[in-house]
Design a binder for these strands. Sequence first.
DNA 1: CTGTTAGCGCTTTCAC
DNA 2: GTGAAAGCGCTAACAG
Lengths: 361, 361
Amino acid sequence: MKPATIRDVAERADVSVASVSRVLNGAGPVTEATRMRVLEAVEALQYVPHSGARSLSTSRTNTIGVILPDLYGEYFSELIRGMDVAARARGYHLIVSSSHDSADEASAAIRSMRGRVDGMIVLSPHVGAANLASGLAGRTPILLMNGGADVERPSIVIDNHGGAVAAVEHLVALGRTRIVHIAGPTGNLDAEARMAGYMEAMARAGLPPRVVEGAFTKASGHEAGESLAAAAERPDAVFAANDNMAVGAMLALQDAGLRVPEDIAIVGFDDIPLVSLVRPALTTLKINIAETGKRALQRLVGSIESAGEVAAAACEVVRPELVIRPSSVAATTPANRYARHRSLATAGEAISKGEHPDDQV
Amino acid sequence: MKPATIRDVAERADVSVASVSRVLNGAGPVTEATRMRVLEAVEALQYVPHSGARSLSTSRTNTIGVILPDLYGEYFSELIRGMDVAARARGYHLIVSSSHDSADEASAAIRSMRGRVDGMIVLSPHVGAANLASGLAGRTPILLMNGGADVERPSIVIDNHGGAVAAVEHLVALGRTRIVHIAGPTGNLDAEARMAGYMEAMARAGLPPRVVEGAFTKASGHEAGESLAAAAERPDAVFAANDNMAVGAMLALQDAGLRVPEDIAIVGFDDIPLVSLVRPALTTLKINIAETGKRALQRLVGSIESAGEVAAAACEVVRPELVIRPSSVAATTPANRYARHRSLATAGEAISKGEHPDDQV
DNA sequence: CTGTTAGCGCTTTCAC
DNA sequence: GTGAAAGCGCTAACAG
């Protein structure tokens, strides 16, 4: 008892498969009479077109693939959410593939998507432009989001350098002088650009740079925080390469008895939803993550549908915005309990405003 | 300059397409000689099989669809992460579809997956067993995770009732008597079961129930918290139907000047990563979310590959585990600063242990 | 307006 | 061992 095919429908409606196809796709002329007959047959047979077969003949899958290095944390889920919204609005499906530990795995994943997607968005830092150029994806349109400003192909990059500079300048303006950077993993282009921005801004401010390693994870931030707390010369500010590490570091520092921001100010990067829920809420460089994902998908679909026209193979830059929260600037009122209230109010506000529209189980 | 097809490879290797297929699939006998020739041609032509076409002839897509109501927050991202891990381990792709506001939309999404997936995991609360039964998905194997313990078809459900009872009993054991429940959205089976558990446990304890509405979102929890803080008779404990609402409520209550857990204890449900990062960390009913997602995928794939054998159409139950954190039980030491330390240490511990393996940008 | 037919790219009997 | 050919389900010319 297999599902009905277009042929079954044609038979039952006593028309040709072509007519059925026409009716179903709203393409081509059809009498109202046949139209009805077809629809009735479709109904009776519970017919649903086989999209795989359709793809084969149209060579369009209405699916776009997303290659991620990982699926942990809010950064990626926000990104996917944005993409999903845009995709569904344009009638596309999303096929996600993550956890590629090596360049080989990522390549394999990309390859395995051929014939399955109309284009893909690639975030894997392992996948260099070289890999892609080597025909990995064949003629499949690709949009890069892996931090490398690639002038040759469509991509979206964050202005990491500018963001980092803004972070440091903010801390310097606050009078902090011993500003440490918790770096992201080496090899990650976003991480490296943030570090470069930090170095440059520090140099410009005439301050000695100090970098401790991190891996973009909360755990690595926590470790970094512990080492800083135990260090001989304690910093008075931390600029972490992403929010996860900033949160991890903050917990470790607080754990060590330091007050944030009085003893040590903290600035993160990304503005994941989490940062406005921790205490104190984190100052960070805000990227509208979901919006960026949405934008990425729109651009990709645009270039797919314009089918090779002006491919607008440009590199779009997203400029993060400094959002100041209590982790760097204590409330204006000196009294400590007021500071606390201030911080809570801030977070509360973010929530009720629906800034991060929220989760459902 | 279109991508090479199997025919191109056959031509170049001077063999038949059948042989190419055999070599590539490792099926059927082939001389080492032709084998080499084929592989060489594949290499030269950068040939990658068109999975769409393969699907059409094998009627297997190696893709499973995931229908979600939403994509907000950590619950779903953790779930997807678990599924993705399991999927990739078994050679499957994941196609996600979310944001279905209505039953119709969800149905359409399910239907549009026909011919595209080998099976699907459905979480949309809108999709009742009835809809599914009416052939929506045709013969496509489905695994339900929408809270309804459906004995007739494969599903995974959380023991919401038991979890809720455990939550209330925990609070009662702590001596709390004015325990309020922040409920999830009506119509959501998980939410309703949690509420029922709450009611039963309260009755059993001889305590008057008191329920305030919520919607599983942080914002709704925040609102609920505000109303509770302003209420005439202030509760001394809150059991929220999920962690998001618990966190939202906690922020509102703290905002209103209440101390957690001294003035009011809070218990959530789910154990999303976030809850061990807020202050105080939240007591909650832990579901190993990623693990559950992994399990769901494994079961589905199992039933797909056993192709109708003992379909094990059972309803599997996941029992949440009460994890006690400082939001319900203050540290043993009376001094306040110690309590603070305790709470931080707890969270720090969770991080460094890699309980929530973490994010990368 | 409608039916016929030729593929889309691959797998898979079934002969040779 | 290998090749020829028949589809998988659908769309898209091209005739009628």
